[in-house]
């Protein structure tokens, strides 16, 4: 009987997981969410920006990672807008432009002091990934001629104030891929780097945060939920954290069940061998 624990049809596990994921979404439990030092420090780094500082806001994820990245984007969009910084948005991943459109429209509608072209600009998609970031570093103004909506950039006052990547104070990158934005952007002297990423990519970025190459770093739905709490704008990430707790508890239970079954089975096999 116990031996069977190591050989459950995984579809039963799937069913249990689905039930325990749906339940807390419909009946929120409101489990507490501890806020990590990492999130606090990352919040402080953006909070230290002054009104009028110039910030790149990179939106680099496709719909595949929307669930983790969009709540981060909203929370950080709130924070940047609350600080009153000038924003230049960009995207380098195929499919990400849609989120750039959405956060641009969101900020323009929520924060009346933001006026398109005056203190916020959204740049269009550029292919080439790492080479594209290098191109920004080498010659930002030469690379872009039109904005995300297709309008000529030289009609926008904010664009005419900017001379190049060196004018910016911080680069805030929301990316579902690890490090290819950091290598080029770290070449701009004095530009502070800040990153929000997916939980699965976090370990790749961790050494770069530890070394001080980035001033801020959050990851995953948990990072988004913590940030929502810090900017006092509770959103979908906080609501989804109950499901996270449930899911983690179940998976740990499955690991234990699997191991009990495995050990029992191994002992039985060892005994059978001994008898021969």
């Amino acid at each position: 009987m116990i031996k069977k624990l190591s050989d459950i049809d995984v579809r039963w596990l799937y069913l249990i997981m689905v039930i325990f994921a749906i339940y807390p979404l419909l009946r929120p439990i409101g489990l507490p969410l501890p806020i990590t030092d990492r999130a606090r420090n990352s919040f402080a780094a953006i909070d230290a920006l002054r009104p009028g500082d110039l910030v790149f806001f990179g939106i680099d994820y496709s719909p595949t990672q929307e669930a983790e990245m969009w709540p981060q984007t909203l929370a950080i969009g709130h924070h940047l807008a609350q600080r009153g910084v000038k924003m230049v948005m960009l995207n380098m991943i195929e499919g990400a432009y849609r989120y750039e459109e959405r956060i641009r429209d969101f900020i323009l509608s929520e924060y009346p002091n933001y006026q398109y072209g005056v203190n916020i600009i959204a740049l269009p998609f550029t292919a080439g990934r790492e080479a594209a970031f290098n191109s920004i570093v080498a010659d930002l103004k030469g690379l872009y001629q039109v904005d995300l909506a297709g309008a000529a950039l030289n009609t926008l006052p904010l664009w005419n104030e900017i001379t190049g990547a060196g004018d910016f104070d911080m680069y805030v990158e929301l990316a579902d891929a690890p490090d290819w934005w950091l290598r080029p952007m770290s070449q701009v002297p004095g530009l502070k780097l800040w990153n929000g990423t997916v939980a699965s990519g976090a370990s790749t970025m961790a050494p770069l945060y530890q070394s001080g190459q980035m001033v801020g770093f959050i990851y995953g739905m948990a990072g988004a939920a913590e940030y929502e709490a810090l900017v006092k704008k509770p959103g979908s990430a906080a609501a989804a954290m109950d499901t996270q707790s449930m899911g983690h508890a179940l998976i740990i239970l499955f690991v234990i069940l699997g191991n009990i079954g495995y050990i029992v089975q191994r002992n039985a096999e060892a005994k059978a061998k001994g008898r021969k």
Binding site: A21, L25, R27, I29, G30, E66, E68, G220, M221
Partner: peptide
Amino acid sequence: VMSRISLFTGRLQFLLFQWLKLTPGGS
């Protein structure tokens, strides 16, 4: 694991709230 649960939750939120138009009740 956290990442993957999030992605799945995202789809569930779509199915439950946008498609079936349920509303979270609760305590």
